[in-house]
Design a binder for these strands. Structure first.
Lengths: 169, 169
DNA sequence: CCAAATAGCACTGATTTGGTGCGCAATCAT
DNA sequence: ATGATTGCGCACCAAATCAGTGCTATTTGG
């Protein structure tokens, strides 16, 4: 489905939470106590984000996780890419890319579609995915945490988000 | 996963195919013979799109399916919405909307999140979804079939698609 | 009448997803 | 030192989703 998994949602919750706690290690306990997400699962998610290089971890009594980079330097796409498998493993997609340098395998182009050259939707589907992925790529954790007018304007999402309601919660 | 299902891909293939066959009923056989998609499954998909009001069907020997509206009046979002369940049934989402008038339940706002008011990602997640959905909404079958410069410019996807390669297949 | 096509219903196997159990290793406060 | 706290690694499970299929009935054009 065209939907973020719970794991990804939990991951984004955690990441956004850490945007407000720069420079300190935040434990999984603190996060799950705050947002009522399954502790064990959140731990798994944080572990993954850590292995993906988005978070730094520290063990021990006062341990936890911390953003490795500035919030504006980490994109939602990186989190999604880390938490959900390789999204390019679709029928109309290039063969799986093992290039660890590529954080966005879905963007890699190729010719692995078994329906080509007759498939009329190959490129369209890819364009669709590229569009979605671009959205995620160009949305930083900072944008996600507290979208300012500047962020909205500097971001391709901005136009789309103009009409989005800004809730106070 | 943040990915279109096979059903949706097949559906889009069929829809795009029909963009090039305006005014005539296209059989499932013709489509699956052309693009090598499972016949039985494609039939199921077309049935669904028909029930959703995107396609008109005609039974009998020369029967088949035909686009109900002009290709620019049907959005990818409508197809996705018809072929994949209600995408709003997520944790940070409003309760399922049974309003049949709303083709895009994901866009409906509400307060069904069981994590509010502490959840800091509720609105961000929704904005993300809204952004993705807006992309799909504002991409017509025409855009998908043969994106012209005009379509690209008139479409929010345009900016994102500028860098997308235009393959000849 | 027959062949071709959609409509309806039900079903299956494989994969993904959400979530958990448990022991080990590191680290800090006392 | 030592125990409490925290992350780490590995394996596991149940439910949901997904891709794909079987079969029959009904409509319709030639």
């Amino acid at each position: 489905m065209l939907q973020l998994t719970k794991r990804t949602e939990y991951g984004l919750i955690a990441l956004v939470h850490m945007v407000d706690r720069p420079g300190v290690f935040v434990s999984a306990r603190e996060i799950c106590d705050t947002y009522k997400v399954p502790r064990r699962l959140l731990a798994e998610v944080l572990k993954t984000l850590s292995k993906a290089g988005l978070l730094a971890s520290h063990r021990g009594a006062t341990g936890g996780y911390m953003l490795v980079r500035e919030p504006e330097l980490t994109s939602v796409a990186q989190a999604v890419s880390a938490l959900e498998g390789n999204p390019a493993s679709s029928s109309c997609s290039p063969s799986p890319v093992d290039d660890s340098n590529s954080l966005f395998p879905i963007l890699d182009s190729g010719s692995g579609c078994d329906m080509s050259p007759t498939c009329p939707i190959k490129t369209p589907i890819q364009r669709l995915r590229d569009g979605i992925w671009s959205l995620l790529q160009q949305t930083s954790l900072r944008d996600l945490a507290a979208p300012t007018a500047a962020a909205v304007n500097a971001n391709p999402l901005g136009e789309l988000l103009q009409s989005a309601q800004t809730l106070t919660y």
